[in-house]
Simulated scan of single mutants.
Amino acid sequence: MIKRKDMLKLASKNDHEKLKEFYKKAYGMTHILNDSTHTEWQFQKNPFNTIDGFSLVIVENDDQIIAHLGFIPVELKFLDSTKVAVWHVSLYTLEDFRGKGLGTKMIKLSNCYGDLSMVLSGSDGTKKIYENLDGKDLGNMNRYIAILNKKRISDFVTNNLEKNEIENFSIKKEQIRRIRTLDEDYDNFWNAVKERFPITVNRTKEYLEWRYLHHPLIDYHFLSLKDENKLKGFAVIRFEDNNNELKAARLVDLICYEDYDNIILKNIVKYCKDKSDFLDFFCTGMFYKKALEEIGFFNNTEAGIKIPVVFNPIDFSRREDINFFYNYHKEDKKNNILNNKNNWFFVKADSDQDRAH
């Protein structure tokens, strides 16, 4: 029973104990939102977060949190400018308080902090709210897969795998290497290469350090490709190999000059070949499609082979596709550009899709 009017607000450090109790009710004790290291990293330390506190919207009733929405501020390279956007994540209302429009109210409040709002892997309920706010569903991300160990994959899927194992390429010249700090010429590289992507995350040094290089929980392999001592591209790999059934290499980010697509992908395959059974890459758009297919990747969004998406542990109960929808809040809507999904470049590391567990 509702005892008093619901209170909608941004969360603060003073709400820590209430949030812990809410997460226990909503998600159980093992969910990553119970880990304060993760929540502080995601909702407070993000370099694009200009809020004095946490980028969390909560609804309180009778001094208890009854609904919750996380939003991750992000700067987009948006055509010939930059725009502030927010990723909506972890939208949840306790069962006794559903049907009151709290989700819509929380999303509207968070939308004040960006020109656009976006979702990856959104629920049907979130999609309905977006559509009611004039948002647009652009379908599923591509999931490209390279088979690195066909026998292991065949044994796991328990049927004859029709896809071939990718070859182990011989690299003669350009080679990727793992780095712990960004190259001095990174800014010049990004300012040039970003023109390849009409709409994508503005990958500033500060963003990459926060997202990958200084991540408190995940050991990302940040790989740099140089030619003639000039930065030509980078890739970010996460190895998920804490189980005996299947070992995965996840290509969670990839940026390079178009002339180096094949070169960097061959280097990535060689880097992962002896470490994993398969390599996958979630992305929107068609920016790397030609090179991926030439090298031997296939689009599993079309093929539908039952290779899990969630590891640590392997979980087939989670849906295999990652959908994408957005809402542009401004009047001068560029619908012909925004509604073309091939103008957007997002990857698995965007939003909250690549979490520690």
Score class of each variant (00 low, 15 high):
1 M>C: 12
3 K>T: 13
5 K>S: 10
7 M>Q: 14
10 L>T: 11
12 S>N: 13
20 K>S: 13
36 S>I: 15
39 T>W: 09
40 E>D: 14
44 Q>S: 13
46 N>S: 07
52 D>W: 07
53 G>L: 04
56 L>H: 12
56 L>K: 14
57 V>Q: 13
58 I>F: 04
58 I>P: 00
59 V>Y: 01
62 D>G: 03
65 I>M: 06
65 I>R: 10
67 A>K: 06
69 L>R: 09
71 F>A: 02
75 E>T: 15
76 L>P: 05
76 L>E: 04
84 V>P: 08
87 W>R: 10
90 S>F: 07
94 L>D: 07
106 M>A: 02
106 M>P: 05
107 I>K: 12
112 C>Y: 13
117 S>L: 08
123 S>W: 00
129 I>D: 05
130 Y>P: 10
132 N>G: 15
133 L>A: 05
135 G>Q: 07
143 R>G: 00
149 N>T: 00
154 S>P: 03
154 S>E: 15
161 L>N: 03
163 K>Q: 10
164 N>R: 09
164 N>L: 10
178 R>K: 13
185 D>S: 14
187 D>T: 15
188 N>D: 14
193 V>P: 07
197 F>N: 03
205 K>Y: 11
208 L>R: 07
221 H>F: 00
222 F>H: 11
228 E>W: 04
231 L>I: 11
234 F>I: 07
251 L>V: 02
251 L>W: 03
252 V>E: 01
260 Y>D: 10
264 I>A: 11
265 L>K: 14
268 I>Q: 06
274 D>N: 12
275 K>T: 03
276 S>V: 01
279 L>V: 06
280 D>K: 01
280 D>Y: 05
282 F>T: 03
282 F>W: 12
290 K>W: 01
294 E>F: 07
297 F>C: 02
298 F>N: 00
299 N>A: 00
301 T>A: 09
301 T>R: 10
302 E>G: 04
306 K>A: 14
307 I>N: 03
307 I>G: 04
308 P>N: 06
315 D>R: 05
317 S>N: 06
323 N>W: 02
323 N>E: 01
329 H>W: 13
330 K>M: 06
338 L>P: 02
339 N>Q: 11
341 K>V: 08
345 F>Y: 15
345 F>C: 06
345 F>G: 03
345 F>N: 09
347 V>S: 11
353 Q>L: 09
354 D>I: 14
